[in-house]
């Protein structure tokens, strides 16, 4: 919107929405409100449109609504956005635990009353969050992840829309637990496993128990895979087959403890993995992109992590406004 004058959105309704967003923003000034007053004074239609838009805007501030949208109440990012991202693991766990203790009853009521209404959980970049579902299942969400949970009397369904989550499933034979991700359905019978969906690459790693991975209901074609502890399935979404093999569960679940493990990974792969966690993307220059790295990186802040990479590898970081470029040293 043009700060000096009226917004240009064609009609009173569009303009009214623009004014509501403008004046209720924390960047709004006295002048914005005076300009709004002048805009409103010109017509009754504008006043009516503004009143409706503002009333709706304020209705979304109701604490009750926020609880309905996110039943755990953990809508506040765990780390304040103002500081650089930092993954404070003990605090994450402690906060999640206290929220769960405080809100378990309320969340349970919402979930069951609303069943099978979907509940959505989202984490921001750099954020990790623990969620206890109404059935007791524990979900740890990794950075930049979005899941939708539906729990009904006949079954439990989680849709992983993006990102990564570790599931520690409470056994309940009457209500099968399944995770839908990409074009696959991961069915579980009471176990611990990790599902990630990044850039159309689906990865399922099983820590304990048994899961079955097959096509979404109604999609047929790809075979169904049965995975046990230590198995990993990888798949390009839409591909004819998936690839399975043995994997280090400790490596795959390292993120749940606040670090990442790399074995003979290229710097390009390392940067890609780290970029899921940090606001400013890392980009290795072409001449260093295929350098190999093995090691453990604690996810304790972008600057610290970049500093360590500079120590481990013959690179130096050049910080720009939009990205950090790793140049040869």
């Amino acid at each position: 919107m043009n700060r000096a004058g009226a917004p240009t959105y064609g009609d009173a309704k569009g303009e009214a929405a623009a004014w509501v967003v403008r004046v209720h923003s924390d960047a709004a000034t006295e002048d914005d409100w005076l300009a709004l007053e002048a805009w409103l004074a010109a017509s009754e239609t504008r006043q009516t449109a503004f009143e409706r838009a503002e009333r709706l805007w304020l209705a979304y501030d109701e604490p009750e609504l926020k609880r309905l949208a996110q039943p755990q109440g953990v809508v506040v990012p765990i780390e304040p956005r103002r500081r650089p991202m930092r993954l404070a693991w003990p605090r994450v766990a402690a906060m999640a635990a206290s929220f769960i203790a405080a809100l378990a009853v309320a969340a349970g009521v919402y979930l069951w009353r609303a069943a099978p209404t979907a509940q959505t959980y989202v984490t921001a970049v750099g954020e990790v969050r623990d969620v206890r579902l109404a059935d007791g299942t524990h979900v740890r969400l990794n950075t930049d992840t979005r899941i939708t949970v539906r729990i009904g009397p006949g079954g439990r369904r989680v849709t992983l829309e993006r990102g990564e989550a570790m599931f520690d499933v409470t056994h309940d034979p009457a209500r099968p637990f399944e995770v839908l991700a990409g074009d696959q359905r991961v069915a579980d019978v009471g176990t611990r496993f990790d599902v990630s969906l990044y850039a159309r690459m689906l990865t399922v790693t099983v820590a304990s128990g048994v899961v079955e991975v097959g096509d979404l209901p109604g999609v047929g074609g790809a075979p169904t895979y049965r995975l046990t502890a230590g198995d990993q399935l990888r798949r390009d979404i839409g591909a004819a087959v998936s690839v399975t093999g043995r994997a280090s569960v400790a490596d795959a679940l390292a993120w749940t403890n606040g670090y990442l493990i790399f074995r003979d990974a290229t710097l390009a792969q390392v940067a890609r993995a780290l970029n899921r966690y940090f606001a400013t993307p890392l980009r290795p220059a072409a001449s260093v992109a295929s350098l190999r790295f093995s090691g453990v990186l604690m996810l304790d802040g972008e600057d610290t992590v970049v500093g360590r990479l500079e120590g481990f590898m013959p690179v130096r970081a050049v910080r720009g406004a939009q990205e950090i470029v790793l140049q040869p040293r």
């Binding site: 924390d26 960047a27 979304y60 501030d61 989202v122």
Partner: peptide
């Protein structure tokens, strides 16, 4: 959602 429900600024 980020702005209204999670309270982030623009």
């Amino acid at each position: 959602e980020l702005h209204k429900l999670q309270g982030l600024s623009h």
